[in-house]
Design a protein around this nucleic acid. Sequence first.
DNA 1: GGCATAGGCAACCTCCTGGTTGCATAATGG
DNA 2: CCATTATGCAACCAGGAGGTTGCCTATGCC
Lengths: 107, 107
Amino acid sequence: MSQADPAVLFAALGDATRLGLLARLADGGASSIARLADGLPLSRQAVAKHLDVLQGAGLIHRRRQGRETQVALRPEALDSARAWLDQVGAQWDERLACLRALVEGDG
Amino acid sequence: MSQADPAVLFAALGDATRLGLLARLADGGASSIARLADGLPLSRQAVAKHLDVLQGAGLIHRRRQGRETQVALRPEALDSARAWLDQVGAQWDERLACLRALVEGDG
DNA sequence: GGCATAGGCAACCTCCTGGTTGCATAATGG
DNA sequence: CCATTATGCAACCAGGAGGTTGCCTATGCC
């Protein structure tokens, strides 16, 4: 769901703080906003904003559970990114191989 | 050499214009700045700036050739991004499977 | 040489992003 | 009910990103 727009997805991943948050989530160390923010040189609000971005990209989803907000990963979103990389990477390799062949055949 | 910083790499990919440029390069349609800019609703300078970002992320490299600047793809850069996605993705899947197992075992 | 073309550089502008603070709100525990 | 905890919301601020324009340099072509 959310969206599979690669630009949005990559943009969400294009921030060290957010990558750190994702790593922390993957590590299982924290799943509430306060605990995610704990230890970071950031305010809770800043973390919440980053989570907004990640959620907008479909990388996580938040669920209010009582007083806390549980943050959960959504690995499917990564699949979209990987699909893009695989596709474009293959295309690039192809193209470069083609050019290389041309050059070598030429020289 | 460039760098393998995933954040920088993803940030470079996190822009629709840049993705378009990369696609255009992969498509083999253009390899000079003016021709890349041609058809886009952007000035040549704007395109050049985007190329700066892509180059900073190691995704392309530029080589002045006579009057033109040839822009070439560097697929190796994508490997770094893919590596990150693979690693973190695997970790996520693992973590989620673990949580799922806990829940099911609990219920 | 002289003109057109392709780029690079720098200044400048605007708007979004990342960050902060302050306050309001909802749930938890006495 | 009251204090505390965990968030959400809004206003606000500084800096960087994306974009433009103007100008200068280098190359190609006549």
